[in-house]
């Protein structure tokens, strides 16, 4: 049963501190944590720290073992990350990208089984028809789905998704997050997703962390984190929170507020 802890995480780019003592809610197996925040609030930097792409101070632990104790290869086996940018529009085929990633990671899967796994992943993400089409012929949304398929080709304990739905239409946004939730339910693990869509985050995430200027402003279940006050402080918007039939909440953004009145320090 996967358990993730991130406590007091700080990170710097050169001499500039980007993250300040960030603590996320402890995550239990099968949970999705949503990272919300305006641009440059530190979401992607936190993702890089969690994936070990960037050095961080503080505690990041998976299954009660600190990140540093895993070693680079050990952590790489446990964590799969989907970066913010989709795969480059080169002449590479999505199947080749999946294949080379699996082989570069030394996944011990016979060719036929790997093909089956790739095909199943492409089918779930509506990519079957473009599996053998060069990436440069695919739309941004399709390439983003290829990026997600790459992250899911393994069965990681920690899945990091940096704005996984930013280029997708309404249908595929929900399909993607349904797929992630189903994967976690079936195979275990936890996922952290940086999102800009607040309603989507409220709907799919078990917990949320609201970031602003590298600090956590609020963290916990969506109903506790998404309040008119926190949204005003972090996003400078006037919002109404409505209870959704069948549970959960809906966020209705009324209008932007003058930024100077609600600057968060």
């Amino acid at each position: 049963m996967t358990r993730l802890r991130a406590q007091g995480v700080s990170a710097h780019y050169g001499r500039t501190q980007i993250l300040f003592d960030v603590t996320l809610p402890d995550m239990a197996n099968g949970e999705i944590l949503g990272l919300l925040g305006p641009n440059a609030s530190g979401k992607s930097t936190l993702m890089r720290c969690l994936s070990r792409e960037m050095r961080a101070d503080g505690l990041i632990a998976l299954d009660d073992m600190a990140q540093g104790d895993y070693g680079p290869a050990g952590w790489r086996d446990k964590v799969a990350a989907m970066p913010q940018s989709p795969p480059s529009p080169s002449a590479l085929l999505p199947t080749e990208l999946m294949w080379s990633t699996a082989r570069a990671l030394a996944l011990d899967i016979p060719d036929a089984a790997l093909a089956a796994r790739i095909e199943a992943m492409f089918a779930a993400l509506g990519l079957s028809s473009v599996a053998l089409s060069p990436l440069h012929t695919l739309s941004g949304g399709k390439r983003q789905l290829v990026g997600l398929a790459l992250a899911l080709i393994r069965e990681p304990a920690l899945l990091l998704l940096d704005e996984p739905t930013s280029a997708l239409d309404l249908h595929w946004r929900m399909v993607v997050l349904d797929l992630v939730r189903d994967r976690l339910a079936q195979r275990g693990g936890v996922a952290i997703a940086a999102l800009h869509d607040i309603d989507l985050a409220a709907r799919y995430c078990d917990q949320l962390a609201l970031l602003s200027q590298g600090r956590v402003v609020a963290a916990g279940p969506p109903a506790e984190v998404l309040t008119p006050e926190t949204l005003a402080a972090v996003f400078q918007v006037e919002a109404e929170i409505v209870a959704r039939p069948g549970g959960g909440i809906l966020v209705h953004i009324v209008r932007p507020l003058p930024r100077a009145l609600h600057r968060h320090g």
Partner: peptide, 10 residues
């Protein structure tokens, strides 16, 4: 597939 992708898989 891009440098960001390569880095993201370690």
């Amino acid at each position: 597939g891009g440098e960001a992708h390569a880095r993201s898989v370690g």
